[in-house]
Computed example of a mutant assay.
Amino acid sequence: MGGGGWGNYGDYGDWANCPVPECRPSQGQDINFMIHHRINGGIEIESVCNENAIARWGWASKDNTIAYNALIHAEWRNKDNNDCEECWYNFMGLYYNTRQLYIVSSARNSHAMVAEFRGGDYQVRTNWRFFQYGESDIQPQRCDDPSNQCLGPPQVQMPWGYGGTVNTISIWKVTGIIIDGSSLRYQHADMPVAEWLINNWGEFTWNRGTGPVP
């Protein structure tokens, strides 16, 4: 394992042994901070939204075992400071998860998040919980940034459409994780599980989707 080798493929007890308390991962359901650094392919590299989404999916999804052989070869550390250099954690989370998690793409700002299905009609947006970084229940927000990055402050993770163009929010079932050198990316089914269009006024319109797959 990288750093001090604290990751143990989902052993909470081992994670708690990290000698720096503020570097330990959250014991709650979500990773509630931005992961700045990761190691895969033997290289330490900065992480962006895509890798943060994969980490959250690997941490808590009931389907994470489908990507076991990839996830055990990637690690992340909690915070962007030198005190955490000895506390690396494996992308492969617990084996006994029951949470129905998916990775989300927001087209306008090229952003990745995670979604948890709450049950009910999958075409209703409020039956899904979106989360990423320190936000546990991301809501759509207006963003007037003409560059469409919407980085803020504060960052808008799920922006409305802008300038007459809609934003497409797609929820994807992960079918695999690929490590190619320093690249870490997810594969998904051809058709999204759920997809909406958000117009300039924040109104959602159902577009398409297969529904959650058990």
Rank of each mutant, 00 (worst) to 15 (best):
M34G: 06
V114N: 03
D180N: 13
G176N: 13
S26D: 15
G13T: 10
G202H: 02
H73Y: 12
G42F: 05
Q139G: 04
H188S: 12
Q123D: 02
A60N: 09
L71W: 05
E195Y: 07
C87Y: 03
F130W: 04
H188T: 12
N199W: 14
E46P: 05
P159V: 03
Y89M: 09
P159N: 04
W59A: 03
D190C: 14
Q149Y: 06
D63I: 00
E85A: 15
N97E: 11
Q141R: 15
W160N: 00
D11I: 07
E75F: 07
E195T: 11
N52A: 12
E86N: 12
L197Y: 06
D144V: 12
P25G: 04
V104F: 00
A16N: 13
Y186C: 02
N69P: 10
T165R: 04
T126D: 14
M34R: 14
G4A: 08
Q123F: 05
W76T: 00
I54E: 03
S136E: 15
P192I: 06
Y162T: 03
Q123P: 01
P21K: 12
C18Q: 04
H188D: 09
V20I: 14
D14T: 02
F130E: 03
S105I: 05
Y96A: 15
H73A: 04
K62G: 02
A55E: 00
K79F: 08
P146G: 05
N8I: 03
G120S: 09
G119K: 08
Y68W: 15
S147P: 08
N109V: 09
R99N: 15
G164W: 06
N199H: 11
M34V: 11
F130R: 04
W160D: 00
E116D: 11
S110I: 10
G163H: 10
A16H: 08
A107W: 01
A60W: 01
Q27W: 08
G163F: 12
G209A: 10
I66C: 13
N32K: 12
W59R: 01
N97G: 15
C23E: 07
P19V: 04
E203H: 14
H188C: 10
W172Q: 01
W76F: 15
P25H: 05
R38Q: 06
N97K: 12
N90W: 01
G41Y: 02
T126C: 10
T205Q: 11
N64M: 09
Y96D: 15
Y186Q: 05
Q157D: 09
N52V: 13
Y95M: 13
G163R: 06
Y68V: 09
C150Q: 03
G5Q: 06
N8Y: 05
I178Y: 06
